[in-house]
Design a protein around this nucleic acid. Structure first.
Length: 427
RNA sequence: GCCGAGAUCGCAUAGCCCGGUAUUGCGGUGGAUUCGAAAUCCACUGUCUUUUGACGCGGGGGUUCAAAUCCCCUUCUCGGCGCCA
């Protein structure tokens, strides 16, 4: 959510941003109109409250002085004031709610380096990494490889849960665990604090970190308590400091989180998403930073460079793309994606997303830090380190041999008792 | 799950019984003093606002001219009992 002062003082900046995104100015104008009406209603209510407060003080004094007649006089004067104040107060609240409901839908201001484009076609190549290996045979898809080795059981998962769930078995499951440990260790030595968050959140906290539409299409609602299962540990880790004023000495706060991630994936269908690529549950190791505004762009590059080093260390081939205006969500101001090469499928596909959300989440969550001139909103940043299911797909396809075996990346071998090849599961 | 006690400004605290301008300490910022520092002293230190104005005592509702204070609901914390991986 953008600061209300942006609408009052710098509406031109928001309008210019909407032009870049190809959006009309209607919503901006409506927020400004509602804000003006709210200010007026509030002013009127404040004036009536003032009259009432003055009367209340008068009554208190008259009572103290034992002047009963004076007290009765004042009481008669303010008899109907309460109702008027309530009516104006309700009007002001309604205006404020409408204003903020609309304000929540207005996207973050994009960074100047974000390329302009209508959709994902407009994303620009930032850099290429690793070797695009040549295979002296026709590379198989990850789906063919996991079937051949019995590493994934989709039909039985569908039987006991539903489609897009999976059992991960044997050595592939062990490599999944190795990936988690490796990524956590990798970031811990770089000064990030390991945090395991709750995997469910209440509605209020969740509204602070996500697009409202996500409640219908992404999150599971857990009854009877009404919790929402998290779609990523970004959400609990960012909301962790909701409603708090942080000490500047705590910033930047760097965390590495791990959690299962739950996604309903409403509306997702199609052959290309078969298997474990797009699923309802996976594990993700995530980087989170809460920083002062002046540090966030440098730290955004740090998050990216952590990803590059991590993925390079596993000897994988991938590209980094700079997400364009038309492909950006509402929350991020700038976003890089890592797209790994899948030789079996023959395309690059998204495995990491690295965003600077500036003060957009912090404004909703009321997360501030202390400065000599008052409290200021912090900036929040997040980046995948590894989403294990997708990293597994990239490793399986890129490290396959002619016989359908998969080589374990060297850096993961210590987490698997030195094992160099994944063994098939025999059932 | 049951019973009891709590939640007050960044932190810690007073006020609550008995309704009438939110107390004090710490921390922070600025200033005085100093060659400089420590110590000391002074001021400021919740939010909003076109306001010598309004709001603010976990959240929501009620009673009242007036609620931190009284009543109801709710969340969380602590203690006791129960259950439990």
């Amino acid at each position: 959510m953008l600061d209300i002062n942006m609408f009052r003082e710098h509406a031109d900046i928001i309008r210019a941003d909407h032009d870049k995104r190809g959006l009309s100015h209607d919503q901006i104008d409506e927020v400004i109109r509602l804000d003006n009406n709210w200010k007026k209603a509030r002013y009127d209510a404040d004036q009536l409250r003032r009259v009432r407060n003055e009367a209340a003080r008068g009554i208190a004094e008259a009572k103290k002085a034992g002047n009963d007649e004076e007290m009765q006089n004042i009481l008669a004067e303010v008899a109907s004031l309460g109702e008027q104040i309530d009516a104006l107060g309700v009007e002001a609240d309604n205006l404020e709610n409408s204003r903020d409901e609309l304000r929540m839908k207005i996207p973050n201001i994009l960074h100047e380096s974000v390329p302009v484009g209508e959709n994902e076609e407009g994303n620009t190549l930032h850099s290429k990494h690793g070797n695009k290996k040549e295979y002296p045979f026709q590379p198989k898809t990850h789906n063919e490889l996991v079937d051949q080795n019995n590493w994934v059981d989709l039909p039985r998962a569908a039987k006991i849960a539903g489609s897009r769930f999976y059992f991960l078995k044997g050595d592939l499951a062990r490599m999944e665990l190795a990936l988690q440990q490796y990524a956590v260790d990798f970031l811990t030595v770089r000064g990030y604090t390991f945090v395991q968050p709750p995997v469910m959140m209440n509605r209020t906290a969740y509204e602070g970190v996500t697009d409202l539409a996500d409640f219908e299409t992404v999150m599971y609602n857990v009854q009877p308590e009404g919790f929402y299962t998290i779609a990523t540990s970004e959400h609990p880790l960012t909301a962790m400091f909701m409603d708090e004023v942080m000490e500047p000495s705590m910033l930047p706060m760097k965390m590495v989180g791990i959690s299962p991630c739950f996604r309903r994936e409403v509306g997702a269908h199609g052959q290309s998403d078969k298997g474990i690529w797009r699923v309802h549950q996976f594990t993700k190791v995530e980087q989170i930073i809460i920083s002062k505004p002046e540090d966030s762009w440098e730290l955004h590059e740090e998050l990216l460079s952590n990803c590059l080093e991590l993925w390079d260390s596993m000897d994988l081939h991938y590209e980094v793309v700079n997400i364009c205006t038309g492909d950006m969500g509402t929350v991020a101001s700038k976003k890089y994606d890592l797209e790994a090469w899948l030789p079996g499928v023959g395309t690059y596909k998204e495995v990491v997303s690295c965003s600077n959300c500036t003060d957009y989440q912090a404004n909703r969550l009321r997360m501030r830090f202390r400065t000599p001139d008052g409290n200021e909103s912090v900036h929040t940043l997040n980046s995948t380190a590894v989403a294990t299911s997708r990293a597994l797909v990239a490793i399986i396809e890129q490290n396959q041999t002619e016989t359908g075996d998969v080589e374990v990346p060297q850096v993961l071998q210590p987490y698997m008792q030195g094992q160099k090849l994944l063994k098939s599961c025999n059932w």
